[in-house]
């Protein structure tokens, strides 16, 4: 362990925790530079480094007023503040796709999307698929008819990704659809039945 300590040598008087924090802070600043607004640019409406916290989101066709922290992810807002717990968090690092929602019809990982970046855009979660009367969306109905998914934790993400993909390719082959949803992970690994269900749903969508 001695070599390790030597390798992590730090300035005198600084604790290990302070040292690590300073390294992380340096990294954050370096990474964030391209994201910072240009001086005197469009972001000049609010004080530097701040955002309006009480915002309006358009979610599942409804306008929702919500208090959003600057560093809050869309998954946190949807799950924790709007009660849309159909949005699942599987990895929190854009690896598994369980948190996928549509933003202006495009699938995004909500765990890795800041809520403030989607203001004014149309957000659709799995809760917004079925009709208010309870009639399932054709995509949901297709999966239901084929008994798709096992534990179901990945299901909302797969449905939203598939819906986004089908908007660009309504009549895909099995292989094309597999590529279209390949950013989503199913740990039960019942991929065959998932694809069969989603293809059935695509067929129902085409039939209207």
């Amino acid at each position: 362990m001695c070599d390790h300590d030597a390798a992590m040598s730090r300035p005198a008087g600084m604790t290990r925790r302070q040292f690590i924090r300073s390294v992380i802070a340096t990294g954050v600043v370096s990474f964030s530079v391209p994201l910072l607004p240009a001086r005197g640019g469009a972001a000049a409406r609010t004080a530097p480094g701040t955002v309006e916290r009480l915002v309006t989101l358009t979610v599942n066709g409804m306008r929702r007023r919500v208090d959003v922290l600057p560093n809050e992810t869309l998954a946190q807002t949807l799950r924790g503040k709007l009660g849309l717990t159909g949005v699942k968090v599987g990895c929190d690092r854009a690896e598994c796709g369980a948190c996928t929602v549509l933003v202006d019809d495009v699938p995004v990982y909500s765990c890795s999307t800041l809520t403030h970046s989607v203001l004014g855009k149309a957000i659709l979660t799995v809760e917004g698929l079925a009709s208010p009367g309870g009639e399932l969306h054709p995509l949901q109905q297709g999966v239901l008819d084929e008994q798709g998914f096992q534990c179901g934790y990945c299901a909302p993400g797969f449905l939203m990704t598939a819906l986004g993909y089908l908007k660009t390719n309504p009549d895909p082959t099995r292989q094309q659809l597999a590529h279209g949803v390949s950013g989503n992970l199913c740990r039960c690994q019942d991929y065959d039945k998932i694809l069969t269900g989603l293809l059935r749903g695509a067929e129902y969508m085409r039939r209207g």
Binding site: L84, T85, V87, V126, A130, L144, D145, A155, L159
Partner: peptide, 12 residues
Amino acid sequence: TTPDLRAKLTGA
């Protein structure tokens, strides 16, 4: 159709 599936697909 198993009785748990609909809820899995609607987020319920």
